[in-house]
């Protein structure tokens, strides 16, 4: 555990909690892509099946349980409790265009050809693109609430900090995982455009709105 890894995890946790609180307090999931949230629930489920097979640490287990629990709670709030506020018309990204190729890639490129390992790889690949429905929704409506941009910033920072963590682990432990690194780079690159808008607009007190 190094500082990048820890702050990455905390950033991820912050993102998840910001989103839950935003929906809960405003009693509305307007502007939030339910499809992205379903993909994240799938990501956590596929990756953390090792909860049932191996114990790493109290920290590891509790974070996994919190992530999975919050992911399903978010999906429940969007598709059940506050369904009336869900903006399905603007959430029109075709997720099968992500899930099918990513599933194929996980079967083809993995560390070990075993069910758990393929599911882990699938979750790594899927996570890297799971935010696309949300970004697509923002580009379609041309704007995002400020609280939604804070959520996206924390979520983007999490994988960016993991990249630093992997550089650290490579230098100090000689450890690297090419699958995680490449997927993590892809994931971070997808946020670059958003990071730019966040710094130039939201941090200067303006609402994030895209030119028509």
């Amino acid at each position: 555990m190094n500082i990048f890894r820890l702050t990455g995890d905390l950033s991820h946790l912050a993102a998840i909690i910001i989103l839950l609180l935003k929906i809960w307090k405003s009693r509305s999931c307007a502007g939030i892509s339910g499809k992205s949230q379903i993909l994240f629930a799938i990501v956590f489920t596929a990756r953390y099946l090792d909860l049932l097979t191996s114990f790493i640490s109290v920290y590891n287990t509790s974070m996994k349980v919190i992530y999975i629990g919050c992911a399903y709670a978010t999906v429940y709030l969007i598709y059940a409790k506050f369904r009336a506020t869900y903006d399905g018309n603007h959430d029109s990204f075709r997720v099968e265009f992500l899930v099918v190729p990513v599933g194929g890639l996980a079967v083809l490129i993995n560390h070990t050809f075993s069910p758990l390992e393929i599911l882990w790889t699938f979750s790594i690949y899927l996570e890297s693109v799971a935010i696309l429905p949300q970004l697509f929704m923002i580009s379609k409506t041309g704007e995002a609430e400020t609280i939604t941009t804070h959520y996206l910033f924390c979520l983007g920072m999490y994988r960016t900090l993991y990249l630093f963590n992997w550089v650290w682990r490579f230098y100090f432990e000689g450890f690297f995982d090419m699958i995680a690194i490449v997927a993590g780079l892809v994931q971070t690159v997808l946020y670059c455009d958003f990071f730019y808008l966040y710094v130039t607009k939201v941090l200067k007190g303006k609402k994030l709105s895209l030119p028509a």
């Binding site: 890894r5 090792d50 790493i56 590891n60 992530y67 560390h111 882990w120 450890f175 995982d177 995680a180």
Partner: peptide, 10 residues
């Protein structure tokens, strides 16, 4: 083993 070491990450 390389693959297992990443599993301590989230």
């Amino acid at each position: 083993k390389q693959a297992n070491q990443t599993k301590d990450e989230l």
